[in-house]
Design a binder for these strands. Structure first.
Lengths: 167, 167
DNA sequence: GTGAATCGTTACAGTCAATAATCATTTTCC
DNA sequence: GGAAAATGATTATTGACTGTAACGATTCAC
């Protein structure tokens, strides 16, 4: 952290790295969310579209499991995507309790647009680095993500963990 | 994103870098918050302690300005820190509207302990990387942070930006 | 010296997400 | 074959959190 005094010899060169990570990461998330606004989407929608696209006709339960979000929260999110005509809930004849989730044609198109938005976002975010440096950064981050057992494509989100310190 | 089909030749090697950044960053923030729980502190407290420690006797207004938090929110946060005996609000004889914020002895001790906690956190988080790789990562991130005009030590927090997409 | 501006505080309101309860359907097991 | 337990989706409720606005005290401008 703040080493504004030149007295001590900065024992660790990478001191504050964890903070830097969290800072830049939050910035990335925030800026991406901004880019999503014109599309009337929130970050959680993007993850849903991705998983729905690849997991052909999965149930809401399975989706929630894959993304780590509560089923009750999924209901609203999918409602919104359905209202926008991006996702449809098809009846599952085998098990009439569950829905089979599918992307509509518009949903596929939107998903592709999201790819472009994400690329633009990344381009802006990493403007300071050249191509090889970006690859380096990605490699380092991937290794951290793997070692920390972060599931690819699953965002930790910002869910409560133990309640705030009771005053 | 998801390039699960080997058909297309992965045009960008660092595709998904922005997501990775946000993912690992959120993970870092979450884990750090967990480590703060036993101390009965939240991440925002840490930033406050740091700025109060260095800005000798600044006002709440100035603190809020420096950290980008609303004065009304600061009231509660400083209340909590004062209850825990880490910070004190001294009367400012020059301007009786403002308080001069100072760390107590216990506050200084706690701040030093936070340094240790942060180092442990970082050690665990970056276990996958050796010392030189950490320095590399820190350098790359610093360049992004600078280019993106992120103020050192100021966390973007998770504040609203434009209201959620109205359904 | 009166009025505008500033600081800290409190009150208020809107948003959001997790828990628990509900309803339909399906599976288990006797 | 049928009652009871389990499962999926949904709704209701509760609680936390945060930004806006109003408030009282003090200081500054003129």
């Amino acid at each position: 952290m703040g080493r504004s005094r030149a007295a001590q010899p900065d024992s660790k060169p990478a001191d504050g790295l964890a903070f830097l990570l969290s800072q830049v990461g939050a910035h990335s998330a925030l800026r991406f969310a901004e880019r999503l606004e014109p599309l009337n989407l929130v970050p959680a929608h993007v993850g849903i579209l991705r998983v729905v696209k690849e997991g052909n006709g999965l149930s809401q339960q399975a989706l929630g499991e894959a993304l780590g979000v509560f089923p009750s929260r999924l209901v609203q999110l999918i409602d919104e995507l359905e209202e926008r005509g991006l996702v449809e809930r098809r009846k599952n004849p085998a098990d009439r309790r569950t829905y089979a989730l599918h992307l509509t044609e518009k949903g596929v198109a939107t998903y592709e647009q999201l790819g472009r938005v994400a690329r633009e976002h990344q381009e802006t975010l990493c403007a300071a680095l050249n191509e090889s440096e970006r690859a380096q950064l990605a490699s380092l981050l991937s290794r951290i993500a793997t070692e920390q057992q972060l599931a690819p494509g699953v965002h930790p989100g910002f869910r409560k963990l133990g309640g705030p310190p009771k005053a």
